[in-house]
Design a protein around this nucleic acid. Sequence first.
DNA 1: ATGGTTGCAACGCAA
Length: 258
Amino acid sequence: MSSFKIATWNVNSLRVRLPHVLEWLYYVKPDVLALQETKLQDEAFPAAVIQEAGYEAVFSGQRTYNGVAILSRKKASDMMVELPNFQDPQRRVLAAMVEDIRVLNVYVPNGESIASDKYQYKLNWLKNLELFLRDELKKYPKLIILGDFNIAPEEMDVHDPKLWDGRVLFSEKERQAFQDMLHVGLADCFRKTNPSEKSFSWWDYRMNAFKRDLGLRIDHILASSVLVSACVKCYIDKTPRSQERPSDHAPVVAEFIL
DNA sequence: ATGGTTGCAACGCAA
């Protein structure tokens, strides 16, 4: 029996948030940390500094936008950076093996608004992710998909469901796409271990949203059935969000006894 | 309150 701790964090620029990440790794010591919105080209990724902190890194980045990375105590292998049959210059996917677990880090498109072309891109992207997940689950029964899904699954995941009704991040089609992913054979670790807790993982920078706790739960850790039953704890760590110059997202952590 | 804040990059775009 050993403990395995995995986390996801949209850092909104790893260049700006590197000190926050290093401090957080020091205190929380996860086995794996999946990052989104690194906003760094691969040549600029701070692999050496992260290695000094005791973590290996794999990454898929670009200038200005998007970018994903997986930090892990043990070196990751079998990396994939594209959804099959879906050409996309946006760096949003990073799958890798860490120990004997398939880790799939995603930065799902935001969608902007339901009238936007970006909303259609988001739905199409999610459909392709679901197809990829079906194949991945066949290959890897021990699978965790985590990241910024940009979807609040249920009313309980939104500070004001009436206000957010029909809006991007909480629209029917996005929520259905999220359920479709679960039906492939996954469960939401946070909801599984905290059936009625109203906690958020993202708060807008504006309007003092964090202080007023006007947030959404859009960052998730989903696990295959073998792993969900081994998940003993899942929580959102609000500490970094309350610090100076924070990301607008908080890290989400899941612990497994395997 | 159709605003507001942040990051990138150097103006407006994306979130």
